[in-house]
Simulated scan of single mutants.
Amino acid sequence: MTLDGDLKKEAWWAVADFHPFTTEVRGIPANQIRKSWCKATEFRKDLIPKELLFEGSADVMKAAGMSFAIEGRFDGTATLQVAVVGVFQECAGPKGRFFLILDQPAGGTPRIRFVDAVRTNRQFGALQKGQGGSIVAWECMECDGSSVLKWDRKKRKFGWVPQPEEQ
């Protein structure tokens, strides 16, 4: 990760440029997540300088209830799932942020249940458990830039919950 901006004027997540360096996420090759990807790296706290994530001894993300990975039974089944965010790079060069939900079967190989990816120069993303088994995906730490994903029983798939228009 490199910072491309002035930390006195902007938050670190707004000026962070993440550089993917792994070719798989939780054992799944990047090109199996999306064919055009050569690299994909899941965000982890140990990849970000400690002084950015902690104010004194306080973990800023934890205090906000945010994480780079959360576990749950988001589709209401007995199978445990993990939702993760990270950065990808296409083989042609463009980078962006991804949001991935994987089934975590006991003793089995993780299986992709949901992928959302957007090309962007600002790849930061974080997750939070929402109400009713939903997942809140954030593109910043102190803003209104969030989206809610929830399992739709009728459609039998994950979908973004429409947000009311701001007045």
Rank of each mutant, 00 (worst) to 15 (best):
F98G: 07
F54M: 06
E90I: 00
C91A: 15
I33D: 06
V15P: 06
I48P: 02
P29R: 13
K35I: 07
F74V: 09
L100D: 09
A64T: 06
D75Q: 13
F98D: 05
K39A: 05
F88V: 03
A16F: 00
H19Y: 02
I48K: 03
F88R: 02
P49C: 01
F43Y: 13
I101D: 12
C91F: 11
M61R: 08
I28W: 15
G72A: 14
V84I: 04
I28G: 10
G107F: 14
P110K: 14
K95P: 00
L102E: 13
V15N: 11
R97N: 03
G108I: 11
W37I: 01
E90Y: 04
K95F: 02
P105W: 14
F18G: 01
L53N: 02
F21A: 05
K35Y: 12
I70F: 13
M61E: 02
P94C: 05
V82P: 04
G56Y: 06
D46H: 06
I70H: 10
V115W: 14
K50G: 04
N31D: 11
K62L: 05
V115K: 11
G93E: 10
F21K: 10
D46Q: 08
D59G: 05
L102P: 12
I101E: 11
G72T: 08
T77F: 03
N31E: 11
G72R: 12
L100P: 06
A92H: 07
F74C: 10
D103G: 10
A30E: 08
F68I: 00
K95L: 00
S36Q: 15
F99M: 01
I112G: 11
A63T: 07
A63S: 13
V87S: 04
I33Y: 13
R111M: 07
G65W: 15
N31K: 10
G27D: 14
S67V: 03
D17G: 00
A30N: 09
D46W: 12
A83K: 08
L80S: 12
I70Q: 11
S36G: 06
F18Y: 05
V25T: 07
